[in-house]
Design a protein around this nucleic acid. Sequence first.
RNA 1: CGGGGCGUAGCGCAGUCUGGUAGCGCACCUGGUUUGGGACCAGGGUGUCGGAGGUUCGAAUCCUCUCGCCCCGACCA
Length: 574
Amino acid sequence: MRFSQAFIPTLKEVPADAQVASHVFMLRGGYIRKVASGIYSFMPLGMRVLSRIETIVREELDRAGAQEVLMPASVPAELWQESGRWQKYGPELLRFKDRGGADFCFGPTHEEVAVDMVRRETKSYRQLPINLYQIQTKFRDEMRPRAGLMRGREFVMKDAYSFDVDQDAALISYKSMYEAYKRIFARCGLDFRPVEADTGAIGGNLSHEFQVLAETGEDKLVACDSCGYAANVEEAAVRAVTEPAIGGGGDLTKVPTPGAKTIADVCEVLKVDAAQTIKSLVYTADGEPLVVLIRGDRTLNEIALKKLTGATELFLAREGQAEKATGAPVGSIGPAGLSLPIYADLELEGATGVVAGAGEEGMHYTGLDLARDCTITKYVALRIAEEGEGCPRCDGEYKAYQGIEVGHVFSLGTVYSEPMGCTFLDEGGKSQPMVMGCYGIGITRVAAAAIEQNHDEGGIIWPMSIAPYEVTVLPLQMKDDDLIAAAQKLYEELRELGVDVLLDDRNERPGAKFKDADLIGIPLRITIGKRSLGEGNLEMKWRREAEATQLPAEGAAEAITSAIAAEKERIAAI
RNA sequence: CGGGGCGUAGCGCAGUCUGGUAGCGCACCUGGUUUGGGACCAGGGUGUCGGAGGUUCGAAUCCUCUCGCCCCGACCA
């Protein structure tokens, strides 16, 4: 492509809407434009990136035995009523009526349609397994779209659905998709981790998220540095301690802590470390108050608490409610003498010499012994796993990461097949519900995640495998006929060799071309300028590197082609 | 949905408090000079000041309503 003919409207200034790198550079580089909140158009460069990601996804899923289909974006309500999700799904589901008044929704995911397709045509165990996928625009009416493509309302997703005869067979499907996902994200040049994830309300036994490591990620993860166990922080197990996390013994002593409302205040007044203190949090679980104890420097995992209590509605009690339930103002609440259910984090078992609220305004206890002075309902893992904590599966330690969820594989069991009557006859002639799995990849989010992970101040640094063009050629002096001819020749030759090349033939000054090339982020740049051409050379520079190297003009096209091939192999090998 | 902020030229912004002919930079168009990291000179004009109502002799500016967008939080497989 010739830049002068291309629709690549780059922006010199940062659009006010954009905060994160992927959003800023996709806007500035002319990849996307916003049409409404969380809804974007893809311009030619953006479209090329999506196509390249999709190609990798197709190749790997086809290799794994899945077959591509295309289901409708508009789904009749009846299907969603059959699965029960028409009622369950909240306002995220975009619902509308056709001219006859019939209810439809714009599919945010397609379990129902996939199940319907398969149940109509599949009657025998001989026809299974089946694994179908599609690449399609989805719509989820997010409460708060944010960060450009990272959390949009409309987005391109690859979704796949597997149908098997039983749990064992379903596990084989699951594993094969898991492996395909690893290959896909590796080929996209991403640094990612498959992590164990919450199976959520949907139940099931297995679920992994594929998280791209990036500081701007919305999800928090921990990964063990030695055994490779990794999990979403909401799901991460914590190691049970053998020694009490707080020791020191001592007698129960009431001390004044005037004005101390927070753990930090108390530590200041009593000159103790936060790890010596206990936070007493009052929660309301379906209307009933309960107390949670957690070390002063820890964070409560509300998901774990929710699972423990089984409550549908769980939230931190408001100040008034907390005081009413415990008789003490927030900041001085403590576990001693309370008659409410008290759940203490596992690491507090056996704790002595603790600092905690004394249950009256402006007073705290020191020397508290949980076993001696309080009635603990249950010790249970309630804290959020943190960096440096011991791995529960080995002797290693957790490292903390932030991640962008680009893929999710999910073992579904018969949650959809049963209510929707997606059954087959087994060898004994008995009707059985199919055992399902579903598997998603956010195509548009992969593009954003790749940028979050690969950029500098100047712009994007695309992995070769998903870049909109593999190489860009910059002739610097547009009035030098010989130089133009050399650029033209190289451009033609590269195209002949099947290379995706962008020739910047605009009548711009060199500085402008360099800036745009950096911004757009094409991984390889060939500069043709008077300086080197006089000596029969071109300059080759990788976007990710600072320095250019000289490349003889003679045979340049072949050399560039093999450099690109080598780079692709390097990415695939990782 | 709760809290905060913003809407003025294609983009980034000033002007709003204290009402009085709508501005700056970039981009754009014309001409010229330039050409190895976003050039310079001269000329040109961009506009329902998000929308609707109101107050006023007069509204970008004050009041009411409304729409849109961004951020923090809550929510969600």
